[in-house]
């Protein structure tokens, strides 16, 4: 159960600012020791915790518009931590942490049944089809705080939880109980040159993420900010990654609507 002082780490990505440069993806690869192969042409076989999609409004020139959408794990809460992926894992290898709201993945516990991949509608979960191999010498640059994964297991974005651990350790050493907002930030947040990504505690009204989207607790965390939306809100995944866009078509691309459902329905 969620406790009084429990956190709910989440992210707000401002799509008006995102230029699609891909820095977040690169930062994530480096931070989290994500394996890659010589031939990465088939994106359905590669691992990338953070993935930048290109959206278009499919209108002919000169009305064509584009939008880039970075997609980390949405750390879905579902109903009471009943995330799409967590509830299905037969081996309890992934968990919804009520204290942080982070969906974890235990690589040494996962046995690779891939049920969670099937259950995640965002294609966030990716499988290690090969054993990880780094070019000679590159293994020296691996991040010692993140374990590398073996072939045959599923992995996904962890909201850089090791950074949370480090920040908590630091605070403990200094005799503090709580960490500051800027002490725990994900690698992608810090890497984004446009400042499109904001990270923080959605339960804490002082945090920027809270102020940007104003999550409506009584309404399943739906944003009160009309510019904000979550991907696939209607499925009830109760995600903790919010997107901001001033463009109606972008917000509408975040979910599925029947043709009969008016444009206004979404706002």
């Amino acid at each position: 159960m969620e406790k009084e002082n429990s956190k709910k780490f989440g992210m707000v990505i401002d799509l008006d600012k995102c230029t699609g440069c891909g820095s977040c993806m690169v930062a994530c690869m480096a931070e989290n020791n994500i394996p890659f192969r010589e031939d990465e042409t088939d994106k359905l076989l590669s691992v990338s915790w953070m993935h930048v999609y290109r959206l278009t409004n499919v209108k002919p020139f000169p009305d064509t518009e584009e939008c880039y959408l970075p997609r980390p794990c949405q750390h879905c809460e579902g109903h009471h931590g009943h995330s799409p992926c967590v509830s299905v894992c037969p081996a309890t290898a992934t968990d919804y942490d009520m204290d942080t709201g982070i969906v974890s993945q235990i690589y040494t516990r996962c046995f690779g049944c891939r049920y969670c991949m099937a259950a995640c509608p965002y294609h966030v979960r990716q499988f290690n089809w090969w054993d990880p191999l780094w070019p000679d010498g590159m293994e020296k640059s691996l991040n010692p705080n993140v374990s590398v994964r073996m072939r045959g297991v599923v992995e996904k974005c962890s909201f850089c939880i090791h950074r949370y651990q480090l920040a908590k350790d630091q605070a403990y050493m200094e005799g503090r109980r709580e960490i500051e907002e800027d002490e725990y930030q994900t690698a992608c947040t810090q890497a984004c040159p446009a400042g499109a990504i904001t990270f923080g505690d959605l339960n804490n009204p002082k945090h920027a993420v809270y102020q940007m989207v104003k999550p409506d607790k009584k309404n399943g965390g739906k944003p009160k900010n009309p510019k904000a939306f979550r991907l696939l809100e209607r499925l009830g995944t109760n995600a903790k990654v919010y997107y901001l866009s001033s463009r109606e078509w972008v917000r509408r691309a975040g979910d599925n609507y029947l043709k009969t459902e008016g444009q206004a329905k979404h706002a």
Binding site: L45, R114, Y115, M117, H123, R125, F127
Partner: peptide, 8 residues
């Protein structure tokens, strides 16, 4: 020939 979209 499975992939990240076709885990099953």
């Amino acid at each position: 020939n499975m992939n990240n979209a076709y885990g099953f």
